[in-house]
Simulated assay, not measured.
Amino acid sequence: MRVLIFTNTPAHVHTYRNAIDRLVERGHEVLVLAREYGCTTDLLDFFGITYRVYGSHEATAYSRLEFASELTGQLAAIALEARRFRPDVLFGRGPYAAFSGVVTAAPTVLILDDEPGDFNHTVSRPFADAIITPHVTRRDLGSNHYTFDGFKECAYLHPEVYEPIPDIRDRLGVADDEQYAIARFNAFDALHDVGAVGFSLSQRRDLLESLAEEATVFVSDEAGTMDFRDLPAREYDLHPALLHDAIREAHLLVADTGTIVTEAGLLGTPAIRYGGTEDREFGEFAALEDAGLIEDCDRYERVKARSLEILQDKRIRTRRRERRDAYVSGLVNLTDLIVDVAEARGDVDRVVSRTGGRAQATRVPNQ
């Protein structure tokens, strides 16, 4: 069987990497079409995944017109690769996967997170044979919409698939008893980020200076433009594939981007998300906040105050880890579901029937 998988961002690599390994081990042919964006291809190389690049995307703010121009050229390259490969089923999201499904007539499976109103959902949904989302998704996406009890990050952070490396502190250069925090700053360069704003430059500086009074501070700057020469912080400079291990050992993660906050929550690390100008509601953040695993703040002063309170609480990491263990143990291993759906050629109903819906996916009733 031939499986086509799109990895347009680093997060997509993590979502599919374990499933890719398993499908290849089972004798299936897998084509990964990748976009040069951030550390996407660095991650693919690190995990030994063979891929072909269909285009690139710079980590700078784009207008909608610039996105449209970029997309046109990339779709032409995708059409050539997809037709040549002739997939039996394909996985992805957004216009890339939707277009490939049209030109190859292959069953198209979209694995989405909870992004109400996202443009990618709008343009791809009519062409999808199955849409799979976390159970916390707040809307009906049509007759082929299925949910699973978990988050897309469960494809790589579920206890059944995640194995932390033991020497991450040595690699970071911090002592066993040294408290450290990670700050993650969004590049705001994706289509759904147009018009959104997170931490301002002055807020970044103020936050890092405040955190440095309580802990060693590492910064993961998505845009890669920060100047650290007069800041009391260190750039996170390990391979990006090790970032989850660094988060797991951290005493605090604070960010103005979403995925990494979800990841921290699922790893049991105290995490704060700054919403900035974002006015949409996200089911995944609400669920994790209700579970006591993350905090979602829409005011900078609250972010700063809670960050310092967390760093001053010496037992909070133990409490969060215990809470995380109890919560995550009941979630679906998304890698299992991806592999099952791939081998069923995108027929999720067949997968549900075979497993009785147990710890897999559930069709959303038409509303």
Rank of each mutant, 00 (worst) to 15 (best):
E160T: 03
R138Y: 01
F151S: 03
A175R: 04
A155Y: 02
G150N: 14
F148L: 12
F148I: 13
F148N: 04
E153H: 13
P134L: 02
I165C: 05
F148M: 10
T133Q: 01
D176P: 05
P166V: 03
S143R: 15
L157G: 05
A175E: 05
N144Y: 02
D149Y: 15
V161A: 09
V174P: 06
D140I: 00
D177F: 08
G142E: 05
D140E: 07
L157W: 09
S143K: 15
R138P: 13
L172H: 04
V174W: 03
P166E: 07
F151Q: 08
D170T: 06
V136G: 00
Y146W: 14
P159I: 12
E163F: 00
R171D: 03
R171H: 04
D140T: 00
V161I: 14
P164M: 05
D176G: 12
E153P: 01
D167W: 00
D140A: 01
Y156H: 15
L141A: 10
R139C: 06
E160C: 04
P159S: 09
D177A: 12
H135F: 09
R139W: 03
V174L: 03
T133D: 05
F151L: 09
E160K: 15
Y146S: 07
I132C: 04
Y162D: 06
A175M: 07
H145W: 03
L172K: 04
H158V: 05
C154Q: 12
F151N: 01
V174D: 05
V161R: 15
Y156L: 13
R139F: 03
G173L: 01
I168Y: 02
T133W: 00
G142K: 10
V136Y: 02
A155M: 10
K152R: 13
Y146H: 13
Y162K: 09
Y162W: 11
V174G: 07
A175I: 03
R171A: 06
F151A: 01
H145N: 07
P159L: 15
G142V: 08
Y146R: 06
V136K: 00
E160H: 10
Y156M: 12
N144G: 07
A175K: 06
P164C: 10
E160G: 06
D170Q: 14
D167C: 08
I168F: 05
E178K: 08
R139T: 10
E163S: 14
G142P: 14
G142F: 05
R171Q: 07
E178Q: 12
T133M: 00
D176F: 01
R171T: 01
G150M: 14
G142S: 04
Y156V: 12
D167T: 04
S143N: 13
Y156S: 14
G150H: 12
